[in-house]
Design a protein around this nucleic acid. Sequence first.
RNA 1: GGAGAGGUGCCGGAGUGGUCGAACGGGGCGGUCUCGAAAACCGUUGAACCGUAAGGUUCCCGGGGUUCGAAUCCCCGCCUCUCCGCCA
Length: 427
Amino acid sequence: MRGDMLDIRFIREDPDKVKWACEQKGEDVSIDRLLELDERRRELVSEVDSLRAERNRITQRIKEAFASSDKETGCVLREKARKLSDAVKSKNDELKVVEEELNSLLLKVPNIPDGSVQEGKDENDNIVVREWGEKPHFDFEPKDHLQIGAMHNLFDMRRAAKITGAFFPLYRGAGARLERALVNFMLDTHTENGYTEILPPFLSNRASMTGTGQLPKLEEDMYRVEQDDLFLIPTGEVPITNYFREEIIDEDDLPMYFCGYTPCFRREAGSYGKKTKGLIRVHQFDKVELVKFVVPGRSCDELESLVADAERILQLLGLHYRVVRLCTGELSFASAKTYDIEVWAPGMKRYLEVSSCSNFGDFQARRSGIRFRRRGGKPEFVHTLNGSGVATPRLMIALLETAQRRDGSIVLPEPLVKYFGQAKIDG
RNA sequence: GGAGAGGUGCCGGAGUGGUCGAACGGGGCGGUCUCGAAAACCGUUGAACCGUAAGGUUCCCGGGGUUCGAAUCCCCGCCUCUCCGCCA
């Protein structure tokens, strides 16, 4: 359906489409400059190649000359080869400069929205594609998670701020145990459903961050360990997707499904004060991530089932939610198509995004060199997908607010009981 | 952190300045044989870039350097292994 998008060839063939994508996603990249560089690059490559070809021919003759003790010819040729080598070098340096700029521009070109995504500017253009369950009714005024948390001493944001800084969470007692229970419940649910569990490193290097598309754009949004040039992962997507960076996967091994628990670290630069009460927006949160590697033709269907797999968590917990298809303007840099899952938090009286499920097409695979080979064929890029299945803080918010009773106790949904160890939080 | 060893194709493993994109073995693929299979035998089997093509160029962990010429020599980095130290 879609070709080799974001391949330089694709950009060459359909620059308008790429420009449109940049516009839709609000990315400022000069495609014209990029094409200019591309053309210059090809010119230089030809020049360097033919210079080298000639150099190689002479080099061969030098060998022969010396082998037949024709020192004179040998020396003359050697002088000639030396000059050619110098020429190769300077042309090649020129080429490197061009390639460097070309490359850095290329890395800033966003993925192209899939044809099934509606055009739009902001969240008002997102489309609710379905809802599950309904908003619970209370015969009392439901408390929000902060009130509930305070009542049962589940978190302590104030002291967490002392330890680290504002907006770092700290769970305690039943709160900590509930967090742990949720993570385990989700992991078990997904592994029973065919996902292989991964527990990856929580820091990633620059190459990995570039591979999944966090870099270069989001450098400022990530915590960075300067000394080692590593980044704290903003999502489990990064380490899990990069698991296969620079590899050629056997076709028979596809599709591959992985899930993994990781904490996620986000600086959330500039977002203070923006609906950031309590646990809703924090610098560190836990998440179970789902990642798929699939054959190109399958990724559309795989996205639908990925969303369904994430939804299952909320269904099992009996939480009302809706699924939203993001418009072009709301898509992330790397995404071709994204569904958000928003769970209803009765205390906050609003929907909270707990999952974002995306099809990246071959965008990430291309950047990270993740390929597969069909029988007897040439390597091709896989398609990658991922989604949260799901993020805990907001899940916990929705759960606490939904499961509260008039007396302030929390009655846990049945599937969670064996993980939590008891059916109720009270007293 | 200290001392050594090493990173070569899908895998194992040669190669230590030209004739090497790379011996040899295994695997894969195709074929012969067979009722079929195994075995045996024969053939084939890396990737990227430029080019309509013919063809050319590059790649032996990554980056620099020496040289007419580097997988092969030198320097830096990354990674792996062994030993010592330290530590959860």
